[in-house]
């Protein structure tokens, strides 16, 4: 599978990336979905949560690198094959956190069905929703490329 190249309009995307910067920092310190282990063993629970947090921290580092200085100068980012899973997971974590913060007042059903009216949102919600959609698109792109990439690899082997 070839690396995935992303080109975005910097003027449109920069405010969205600025908006998620504190989210990336908070997700490096705190799980977006609390570890849920029905066990009285504190030691195991600590290992469990630490492992999940370590994984989530790696996801945030990958996103920071992907949309770092180089992207902010050129609007171009390249996702290597070995980063795809991490980016796909990171998109999920970022969207879940946006839902808890900027988008907390939007009903679940509106979000789920994509029936959010932009004119009903305040500026923070609008930027949050823009970021929410950006990371949905990035996630879908990565999933599609990954699944087609797998097919390409199979074709190549035959």
């Amino acid at each position: 599978m070839k690396p995935i190249e992303i080109r975005l309009d910097l003027n449109s995307v920069k405010p969205l990336l600025d908006h998620i910067e504190p989210i990336l920092d908070s997700l490096s310190d705190e799980l977006v979905v609390p570890g849920n282990l029905p066990d009285d063993d504190d030691l195991l629970e600590n290992f469990w949560e630490e492992g999940l947090l370590e994984s989530q921290r790696g996801e945030m580092d990958t996103i920071k690198a992907l949309f770092g200085e180089s992207f902010r100068e050129t609007g171009r980012a390249v996702m290597d094959i070995d980063q795809v899973d991490t980016v796909i997971k990171a998109c999920s974590a970022i969207r879940l956190k946006l839902r808890e913060t900027s988008l907390q007042d939007i009903p679940d059903s509106d979000l789920e069905q994509g029936q959010v009216e932009l004119e009903d949102l305040d500026s923070d919600q609008r930027i949050g929703y823009g970021a929410y959609m950006l990371f949905a698109s990035l996630q879908e792109l990565a999933i599609t490329q990954m699944e087609h990439g797998d097919l390409d690899d199979q074709d190549g082997a035959n």
Binding site: V33, G35, N36, L37, P38, W48, S55, K89, S92, L96
Partner: peptide
């Protein structure tokens, strides 16, 4: 089952063991 729940939580899905 614990391993699967851990993996699902690693992918940020709301998974529980029952």
């Amino acid at each position: 089952a614990e391993t699967y729940v851990y993996q699902l939580q690693e992918w940020h899905l709301n998974a529980i063991l029952q």
